[in-house]
Design a protein around this nucleic acid. Sequence first.
DNA 1: ATGTTC
Length: 476
Amino acid sequence: MDPGRFTQVDATTWRVDPWGAMRVPAIIYADENLIRDMDNKVYDQAVNVATLPGIVQACYAMPDAHWGYGFPIGGVAAFDPDRGGVVSAGGVGFDISCGVRTMLTGLAVADVLSVQKSLADSLYHQIPAGLGSRGAITLDALEMDAMLIGGARWAVERGWGEARDLERIEEEGCMAGAQPDWVSERAKERQRREMGTLGSGNHYFEIQAVAAIYDLAVADVFGLVQDEVVVTIHCGSRGLGHQIGTEYLREMLVAAKEAGIELPDRELACAPINSEVGRRYLGAMRAAINCALANREILGHFARRIFAHFFPNCDLRLLFDVSHNTCKVEPHIVDGRRRELFVHRKGATRAFGPGHESLPAALRMVGQPVLIGGSMGTGSYVLVGEATSEAKAFSSACHGAGRALSRHAALKQWSGRQTVDDLEKEGILIRSPSMRGVAEEAPGAYKDIGAVVAAAEHAGLARRVARLRPLICLKG
DNA sequence: ATGTTC
């Protein structure tokens, strides 16, 4: 879009001053090239979100922002319940608590390269991936509720994970306030056989090499070492989260109307936080957060099982596990006053800076690991939260490269088989049940992740620590 | 993202 539509504040800050029904400004953090490549829809959607009741400070878009359902993907918006603030299913996203975890292996790249192909095949055969994939775990009604309340803690109690993981997971692996009773039977039924599965779309299970270190001191605290191998898992709450999103979106259309909220776009359906539907959604959404945390913990357990087969002395340690599709109650300073806000992050990663009380002791001094998933070919980044992000975007950062081309456009431009062959020549092994999915996820369909994280760093959202290069990628 | 259309 045309940068001229904004008031440029600095090289990576672009503001839309309130006009029309906007209650607060809209602010996009990106460099000029990213703004030029960004769809006009991001502007429209950020402006629309800024009209919602109870929104505080500003509506933000991250450098990887693109068009989404109602809210932009890469959007951050915080609402004050005491000022009529709302909660919106479209502001969280359909894949509730979709997120990323990175595990340290301590292995050298050479160790993995010596078994690269058989390791790739093993992942493909042992990790259920793809649309409608089902796992070895089936939950009855009692276990479903226990999982929705316990999250990763539940997984650890059942032997699918390790207790030491929990302090390295957002909410220590267990989101409080989950209400399984407010999750429909249909949502639970869809999830009954989907625990420990990857899903499809942009979800992946990757074995990566630490390709570059930007901040040696923080990398040392994180345990990231040049040319060592890590495992990164990107997935969410599968069918359960999607079903909850679908059902509450419909309810919120009615709730918004009843509350007299003017919606500039039906897709912004929302309910007052202090309303029956709002409270029910929050309880169900928190249950879905636990589902995603449990799912990633189980997949981490599978990673350990597979690595133990190839490398008997290998010990996989969790660096961190963080979601990028949530609504969280957090204290933030607004207008010099501490307020409890409902922070929607949709395709935006929580990025707490140094000293934050929720971080484990081993990380508190440096800040939260901010895990940024890239595309299959171009790799990923680990950033660290910055104190400045609190005032810039309620302690949030980008979540990935962000799509540059639609799935449809990508399908027209690339073939899945050719993409796999091209990446194999670069030493990257792709395994996927869907060649169509691989084509949709071709590296060229994504923005330049290097430019995205550089812009995030310049804007003071988070700082680069390391770049990760894929060696093996299991795609859903 | 998604039993890719309740």
